[in-house]
Design a protein around this nucleic acid. Structure first.
Lengths: 179, 179
DNA sequence: ACCAAGGTATCACGATCGTTTTACCTTCGG
DNA sequence: CCGAAGGTAAAACGATCGTGATACCTTGGT
């Protein structure tokens, strides 16, 4: 069973992704949500509440999709995410950039996502190397963020480059000699 | 001599960077520009024209600041850029995300910047390795984009991680054997 | 049979949006 | 000394913003 709330979120997320947050009005959002504006406000409270709810839902979907343990799977998942969802740069970064810090609920949604992302990188590094390595996790985070940003205009080759770089960094650590 | 146009651009850039593009009104921009709204419109034509002019000016300033030939200088320059200009994610990516593709002048300004960025990465790779290497240049681009995005919430350690990763990738290429 | 729950469509609100206009300075080369 | 050139402040434009209100319709459980 999909709740009304879920339908609203699912319908509006793509609009935000395509046109930004401040740039779309409630009229377009109500139209995309498939419900009346009265129902939308009853469920979401405000436009800011809707944005936070969309970001929370996206984080959960991201969390399920990126439940991976290897570098290989990480970038393969990123590629298929880009295929199905498009690649317009990190929606969380963009949400924060449009709102300043003026909306605490948005702020919280973004940092929730970022915590999750960091933990995912640390988990992959630990699984790949057999130990925790904060530096390597930070590097993998940077590569993932970079691939997310660069793939919006470089396409698949940005993902491939990040993937290859990550493998080199992991491999270099494990004493592999240059082929 | 600074022209009126330059003063307008210099005054408004920080406002866009802090609050986004669609989210700020012309009243705040005229106040920040230091000129009347009539003068602002005479020089910029429209809000979109102002945005494109601000992005063009930023690209030129970026071009001068990042006139570097080494990995070392690249990330040192990024760190001092972040210190003086702040780190809120790539302003060009954000501009594109807020406007969809609806404004051709903004679109053009963003791709001008991206061309410049790619050429800078290729130039650094060529200087560091002595030959052109498209794959390595792509990896450096991803690392730079990733550092730009990640430093907005990870701070300096994101830059350091990208720097170290770039050095590893360059070093590995040049035939260094482990220990 | 009925009533609450939750949906719809539509309109109106005050505010703010981007833009233009009106009317009035100031400065400076000829 | 005069007349462009280029500036100012302030008001107003229709449109659109986020939000609430009004009135009506459809359900499903008791």
């Amino acid at each position: 069973m999909t709740t009304t709330r879920e339908r609203i979120i699912a319908g509006t997320e793509a609009v935000f992704d395509e046109h930004g947050f401040a740039g779309v009005g409630m009229d377009r959002l109500t139209e995309a949500s498939g419900v009346s504006s009265r129902t939308l406000y009853k469920h979401m409270g405000s436009k800011t509440g809707l944005i936070a709810a969309v970001l929370d839902a996206r984080r959960e979907r991201f969390d399920q999709a990126f439940d991976v343990l290897t570098i290989e799977d990480l970038f393969a998942t990123l590629a298929s995410w880009a295929d199905t969802e498009g690649a317009r740069g990190c929606l969380f970064l963009r949400a924060l950039g449009e709102d300043g810090r003026s909306a605490p609920e948005v702020d919280r949604a973004v940092s929730d996502y970022r915590d999750l992302l960091q933990r995912a990188m640390a988990r992959i590094v630990e699984h790949e190397t057999g130990r925790t390595d904060a530096v390597l996790a930070e590097q993998l985070l940077v590569l993932f963020e970079g691939a997310t940003a660069a793939m919006s205009y470089r396409g698949r080759q940005a993902i491939d480059a990040a993937h290859a770089a990550a493998k080199s960094l992991i491999g270099g650590l494990m004493g592999a000699t240059p082929s």
